[in-house]
């Protein structure tokens, strides 16, 4: 089974580990992701803030490229890319004015988008398309005595409410449960970590990060599992500064859920890029 794949800009640098582990896990499941040729940045919050429709047009170009190449589904790992591409897809389907704008912009470069492509997050692909049974069958080294909180971040179910609940998503819970880990209740699973303002509103970001770390620690989590590059970087890299600011002593590894899955599937740790976190993954990795 082959899907078009939108890596997103950070997968080439800060979230190289996400991409590597995602591809490795999918490969082991017999799924091939094929990078959209010549994809461009989705625009994310910054472009939307400077020019709200430009980010839609940028996302539409990616969808058009995937469609031209004959794909019907685009799989996205980054939650921000997912949200932006889904936004473009949703506006294309439901808002005639936005559709006209996107079509018009694409036309000037001889491209078109017919709305044949749907955008899927990698969690959606794994849990709802491949299905829990297929994941379970690939688990060879179940995790024991590992407590995990699933942290979805804000953008997985929002704003489109596409494949998971916007308030209490469950897909990652399901994926992680298959690894044998104890998946803990996590009330702040869909709160925002402030990733989009991590360079500009640092004081506020530390407060948001602390909220999430607090509950993870309070529930006794060994690991926070994430599905978004910004969440990972933010929760991982800022733990020291949170501790300095709030007088706390959090030290909780933040791993991509694909890395956790990969460990349970017994994949070669090199392919899971486990050494890139600020807080070392430690015990979980050495099972």
């Amino acid at each position: 089974m082959n899907y078009a794949y939108m890596p997103g800009c950070s997968s080439h640098s800060s979230s190289r580990d996400y991409e590597m582990s995602a591809l490795a896990v999918l490969k082991a499941l017999g799924v091939q992701l094929e990078e959209i040729k010549d994809w461009n940045c989705c625009g994310s919050t910054p472009v939307s803030s400077v020019a709200p429709v430009t980010s839609m047009a940028l996302s539409a170009r990616n969808l058009a490229l995937a469609e031209e190449a004959g794909y019907r589904e685009v799989v996205v790992t980054c939650s921000s890319c997912y949200s932006m591409l889904k936004r473009a897809e949703t506006y294309y389907r439901n808002d005639p004015a936005a559709r006209e704008m996107m079509a018009g912009a694409l036309k000037t470069m001889g491209r078109q988008f017919e709305g044949m492509v749907t955008v899927k997050h990698i969690l959606e692909l794994m849990v709802y398309h491949l299905g829990p049974e297929r994941l379970a069958a690939a688990v060879t080294k179940p995790l024991k005595d590992v407590k995990i909180v699933p942290y979805y971040g804000c953008l997985l179910g929002r704003p489109q409410k596409a494949f998971d609940d916007p308030e209490t998503p469950t897909s990652m819970d399901e994926a992680l449960r298959i690894t044998g880990a104890e998946v803990l209740r996590f009330d702040r699973k869909s709160k925002c970590c402030g990733g989009s303002v991590m360079l500009t509103k640092q004081k506020a970001v530390l407060r948001l990060v602390e909220e999430i770390l607090w509950e993870a620690a309070d529930r006794g989590a060994d690991v926070i599992a994430v599905a978004c590059p910004l969440c990972q970087l933010n929760l991982d890299a800022y733990q020291t500064r949170v501790n300095a600011e709030f007088g706390t002593s959090y030290r909780i590894p933040v791993l991509y859920f694909t890395q956790v899955l990969g460990i349970a599937m017994g994949l070669d740790k090199k392919h899971l890029a486990l050494g890139k976190t600020f807080v070392p993954a430690g015990r979980v990795v050495n099972i």
Partner: peptide, 18 residues
């Protein structure tokens, strides 16, 4: 990492930017 058809991206931005 770069987009090969960078002109397309620039055109899109120019067209849709207020």
């Amino acid at each position: 990492s770069r987009v090969a058809n960078i002109d397309e991206v620039r055109k899109l931005m120019a067209l849709t930017r207020p």
